[in-house]
């Protein structure tokens, strides 16, 4: 304990799971309240936005599709950073963070695919096309499922942490492919209209609700990630208690 607290003033402050739990418990109620408020404002702005001259009211789907798609990539980026934390710094919470982010990332990727499909049918005339953007996002979803399955398959924590970190980093190659797929290949999916050089190719009437919804989704991710990290720490605590109980029962 002394060696951990001696390294005050760095990310190692949070290396003690008990301390992290204390911080998470203190932060979560406020974070959840801000998340709900931001989501309510975002939804109000979205439903009060005008109809798009081309998309009509289907632009409403964009306000949840685009944030889902952004978060599907952000969650994976958090996992890739956590993987570096495991492999390079051997931070005890890095693997906790990676495991906790995976189901949330998978959920957002699933939502990006479903809402995109529900927008594509009326606008493109098809639920699905095997173009580079859609296919690479489907690959991301499969990678998420693979990581979740791997996390459950390996019992030994240190072996699982290294395996998960390596697989996550290898899978990260897909993220730039998703981002730039619309520029590199001729896709049905439109190119970036917000994060591009110069001004966003979108009117403020749509851009502001989209930004607030993106912030709300980011806050949802942060809240769920903290909650899931807390669960993962408890799972480890439970595991070590059960092992101790089994050892005591065996030795008695």
């Amino acid at each position: 304990m002394a060696e951990l607290t001696a390294k005050a003033g760095s990310i190692w402050d949070f290396a003690n799971p008990a301390r992290f739990m204390g911080i998470a418990n203190a932060v979560l109620p406020g974070l959840a309240a801000v998340t709900v408020a931001c989501l309510a404002i975002g939804l109000w702005m979205a439903f009060n936005a005008p109809e798009d001259y081309q998309q009509g009211s289907s632009v409403l789907i964009m306000f949840i599709h685009v944030p889902s798609a952004w978060l599907s990539m952000m969650a994976y980026t958090v996992m890739a950073l956590a993987a570096l934390g495991t492999l390079v710094w051997r931070h005890p919470l890095a693997d906790v963070s990676l495991r906790a982010a995976a189901p949330i990332g998978a959920a957002f990727t699933f939502l990006a695919l479903i809402t995109g499909s529900l927008w594509g049918k009326p606008m493109w005339g098809t639920w699905w096309v095997w173009d580079a953007r859609l296919t690479s996002v489907l690959v991301l979803f499969i990678i998420y499922l693979g990581i979740i399955a791997l996390a459950r398959a390996i019992e030994e924590p240190s072996v699982a942490a290294r395996a998960l970190a390596i697989v996550t980093l290898v899978g990260y190659v897909n993220i730039p492919i998703i981002k730039f797929s619309v520029d590199w290949w001729n896709t049905l999916h439109q190119p970036a209209s917000v994060s591009r050089l110069g001004r966003p190719a979108m009117d403020a009437a749509f851009l502001y609700p989209l930004m607030v919804m993106a912030l709300a989704y980011t806050l949802i991710f942060l809240t769920l990630h903290l909650m899931n990290m807390r669960n993962e720490i408890l799972r480890r605590r439970l595991r070590s208690m059960r092992m101790l109980a089994a050892r005591e029962a065996g030795g008695a």
Binding site: S57, A107, L111, T115, I220, M227
Partner: peptide
């Protein structure tokens, strides 16, 4: 408000709400 695309907008919002609420629960 939802216009002619309600049949696509409602499921999109319903699935999103269900997945996020389900994950939280």
């Amino acid at each position: 408000m939802l216009g002619q695309y309600a049949a696509y907008i409602v499921p999109a919002y319903a699935v999103s709400a269900a997945v996020i609420a389900g994950l939280t629960a």
